[in-house]
Nucleic acid binder design. Structure first.
Length: 285
DNA sequence: TTAAGAATAT
DNA sequence: GATATTCTTA
């Protein structure tokens, strides 16, 4: 019965038996001959580049995968193919057709280049974003928290390693300074940092045991008492989910709220970064 | 060659 | 002061 589309992991199967890139009509070729088009008053279709196709393809695939309403970042800025995508995506789209004519290929490269080269608007570390940062750092333990890992665990689209590195540098200074002062007296100048207190276990080396707990450890690999995670486990995919979550400073009870939180977080971030329409407002066509 | 961390620059 | 960029080192 289910004649519909089976969306298991069957995607690769779909490709079996399909014509190869070389067998297909070039993208540059119009589907409808010009005379025919004019005869029937069909306005010519805008030329599509490989980039367009890949984009559409990705959109489709991700929709299928997520049961359909996942939108990567924002809808109208299709341009920015986020930089970090390099290692982020599990090369499921290795099938990129290599056969393209020079023009398209050029555009593809240009766009890819631009995504990395273009200047992004300066990131603002809102309390939410910072909180996220602190959570992840605490999760890793201050000693293990390095920019790349933090960036990955934070899982915020558009956030770069450099962003994190810079913030981490400052954060470390703050923490050090705080340790210097025996009792907690956040100076008023540290508004942001004071907004999210440094979790106690940040100072331990810790590692996740993937079980919702993480264990204290020291150099000798001596494992201490497992501590329940007070914050979301390493998020994998930005999870669109409705329903707002309190996310009031109280703390999360479980994964649901963690997800909601993440959703909220994502939205917050989106609007935040978009004020300067820069890395997306730029048309690379 | 990549990434962390510190030092500078904007 | 906040964040980005560059430089040095591992």
């Amino acid at each position: 019965m289910g004649e519909e589309v089976k969306i298991d992991d069957g995607v690769p199967e779909w490709e079996a038996g399909l014509p190869s890139a070389d067998d297909l009509m070039p993208l540059s070729q119009a589907l409808i001959p010009a005379e025919l088009a004019s005869a029937f008053k069909i306005s010519p279709e805008a030329p599509r580049s490989l980039v367009d196709v890949n984009r559409a393809s990705n959109t489709t695939l991700s929709s299928l995968r997520t049961g359909f309403n996942f939108k990567p970042f924002s809808n109208d800025d299709k341009d920015h193919a986020m930089a970090e995508s390099d290692e982020a995506d599990e090369g499921s789209d290795q099938k990129k057709a290599r056969r393209v004519d020079a023009a398209d290929n050029f555009i593809g490269e240009a766009e890819a280049e631009a995504a990395k080269t273009l200047k992004r608007p300066r990131l603002v570390w809102t309390p939410q974003l910072h909180k996220r940062f602190v959570e992840v750092v605490a999760y890793l333990g201050l000693k293990n928290a390095v920019p790349k890992t933090i960036m990955q665990l934070m899982n915020v689209e558009g956030l770069t390693r450099e962003n994190v590195a810079s913030h981490l540098q400052k954060y470390r200074l703050y923490v050090k300074r705080m340790q210097g002062l025996s009792n907690d007296g956040p100076s008023p100048s540290d508004q942001l940092f004071a907004s999210t207190p440094v979790p106690r276990h940040s100072f331990n080396e810790s590692s996740s045991n993937g079980n919702g707990n993480y264990s204290e450890k020291n150099e000798n690999n001596h494992v201490g008492m497992p501590i329940p995670m007070p914050y979301p486990p390493p998020p994998i995919v930005p999870m669109p989910m409705m329903g707002m979550a309190a996310s009031s400073a109280s703390g999360y009870s479980g994964y649901e709220s963690a997800r909601s939180y993440q959703h909220h977080f994502q939205q917050q971030y989106n609007s935040m970064v978009h004020q300067g329409r820069d890395w997306s407002g730029n048309n690379i066509k």
